[in-house]
């Protein structure tokens, strides 16, 4: 009786695990749309890139709460697409006790190029962070949907 109950329970549990998997496999929806990309480039005054630096992004409508975050590559670069909120976006870049905050005004037009630096003199490493409008990411919309499957967004 007990073994029977365990088998039933195990079968029900396995079915529960499998059900979502099958649902996912039928519904893959990938959308890509045109968007302005921003490239951040962080480096020291020596030319050494701020590799693998932490980047935290703050949106204009809630500047005290991180909107997003990322990590620069080994060349000190990070590319991303911002939201639609107009105003001042802020970017905090930190690595090994060094840090800089840079800002970018987003309006109706394309973002302006801004370069920020901080620190001075010997004993501090000058940080330079450039933010540039980098062009468009994606030129079309793509939808992949498995034939016969359900729409995942439904």
């Amino acid at each position: 009786m007990s073994q029977c109950f365990r088998r039933v329970a195990a079968t029900a549990f396995a079915a529960g695990l499998c059900a979502p998997l099958s649902a996912f496999s039928h519904a893959a929806l990938i959308e890509a749309e045109t968007a302005q990309a921003i490239r951040l480039h962080a480096l020291y005054d020596t030319g050494e890139p701020m590799s693998h630096a932490q980047v935290i992004i703050y949106a204009p409508d809630d500047p005290s709460t991180p909107w997003g975050q990322g990590v620069t590559d080994r060349d000190g670069r990070l590319e991303f697409v911002l939201g639609n909120e107009p105003g001042r976006w802020s970017f905090q870049v930190r690595q090994s006790g060094h840090g800089a905050m840079v800002h970018m005004e987003i309006g109706a037009d394309a973002p302006v190029i801004m370069t920020a630096s901080s620190a001075q003199g010997w004993g501090q490493r000058l940080l330079m962070v450039a933010l540039v409008a980098w062009g468009a990411l994606g030129t079309a919309a793509f939808v992949y949907r498995r034939k016969g499957g359900r729409n995942a967004s439904a």
């Binding site: 930190r94 006790g97 060094h98 840090g99 800089a100 905050m101 901080s118 620190a119 001075q120 003199g121 010997w122 004993g123 501090q124 940080l127």
Partner: peptide
Amino acid sequence: GLHLGHVGEGHCH
């Protein structure tokens, strides 16, 4: 010549 003063990791002139 020593830059002891900061604001967190933020810099000071």
